[in-house]
Design a protein around this nucleic acid. Structure first.
Lengths: 218, 218
DNA sequence: TGCAGGATCAAACAGTTGTTCGTCCCTAGA
DNA sequence: TCTAGGGACGAACAACTGTTTGATCCTGCA
């Protein structure tokens, strides 16, 4: 018993309570308002801690940003890899296209369920893709080992297709996911006059799979 | 003969040379480095004009941003509408899915050709979608009249599908386009070990149409 | 030629930014 | 009980932000 009961928050890994509070407040504010639009004072104020906490615990604002990014993307990649591995086991090492795509789509979609805290993390990750630091973009661009596993699985599932075709279509699928931001959903609701219900995550997943699977079988 | 020969630059509409220079420099820097990462001093320095020019000609930095956004999106919407109209004429008012999608995909893709100045404009528009001001996002979210024409055409082309399905799939298609950013292409090149050639715009267009058309016919 | 007025300029403004500096608190170990 | 040290605190720092000001230039028009 140090001083603080284990936090119920996602970021807690046994650190000081202040550090975890900063981490969560920063992730939330970054996800909602963008990186450059959130100041260190906004973060510490939201977290109810001292202004100097960010630099004390993380070194700098950018380092804090990068740590959130690193942790969340690692979690996402791990879950995707787990599902891909599971699909591979269930299909004698050659899962069909739909199962592969499900491993790609399902984790970020399920985390985006309206009731989950992870919803914020997903928005953070999506935002990092376009607004991230040079450092973050470098990681995204150069560390493709995770994506390569999906590409390899797809090549195995559709050996008749040229490899470039596989790569491009994987690229299209990634675009489908990364478009799932708050503002895009809002636009869709306005366009469809409320006919589209974003809350139905599993239904959306099936819609995405229907669309993408058909695209891959073309 | 006022004072300045007609600029060869895209933004020239007969204004002062300084204003056009600011406009173009701002678009370029915003597209490359993001909105918040570019200061008024960066813009005026790049344009070779005085610091006060931005506020004198546009009122404020945000107003300048918004004017670029407004002009470029208007141009894009106009070209898309033109192609959709043309497709409608060519098919007795009921163009097939592929022709509709081509009207949606082709303009931003063709503008993104490596040799064109418009390449910057496309990147600007894509960036505005995620990093834009509240004001800009409001326009994007609430002004769906332009997208509605595409949705209506698709409903006409696939009357057997539920309308929500059409809306969702249109949403997926938009995601495919907006993913075409510099960093995403770089990542794809690394992943495919250079097998994907972004320079082949028409080939990419056909790939996108193959994928999306199949998704719509599912 | 003289003059209005738009355009451009250097300079300064007030506000916000991320970061750092001592100081104080407060608990764990001697 | 005393003390060493990590943690939190208020306060200040220097740099940078967008914007404004007033003077100056220059051109088109009378």
């Amino acid at each position: 018993m140090t001083d603080i009961p284990a936090s119920h928050d996602a970021a807690d890994t046994g650190e000081a309570a202040t550090k975890a509070a900063v981490f969560n407040a920063a992730e939330r504010l970054f996800a909602l308002h963008g990186f450059q639009n959130v100041s260190v004072r906004d973060i510490t104020s939201e977290a109810g801690v001292n202004l100097a906490s960010v630099n004390y615990h993380f070194g700098s604002k950018d380092a804090l940003l990068f740590e959130i990014f690193r942790r969340r993307t690692a979690e996402l990649n791990r879950e995707r890899a787990r599902m891909l591995h599971e699909a591979s086991d269930n299909h004698q090492g050659r899962p069909p296209v739909r199962a592969i795509l499900e491993a790609l789509f399902a984790p970020p979609l399920r985390w985006a369920a309206p009731s989950l805290d992870r919803r914020i993390s997903v928005q953070f990750i999506i935002r990092a893709r376009s607004e991230g630091t040079e450092e973050m973009r470098d990681v995204l661009v150069k560390d493709v080992s995770h994506l390569a596993r999906f590409a390899d699985a797809l090549i195995l599932a559709r050996p008749d297709l040229p490899r470039e075709t596989i790569y491009w279509r994987l690229h299209f699928c990634l675009g489908m996911i990364h478009n799932n931001r708050f503002a895009e959903f809002d636009r869709l609701h306005v366009l469809s006059d409320g006919a589209t219900r974003e809350a139905d995550i599993e239904g959306l997943l099936q819609r995405m799979l229907d669309f993408a699977e058909a695209g891959f079988l073309a």
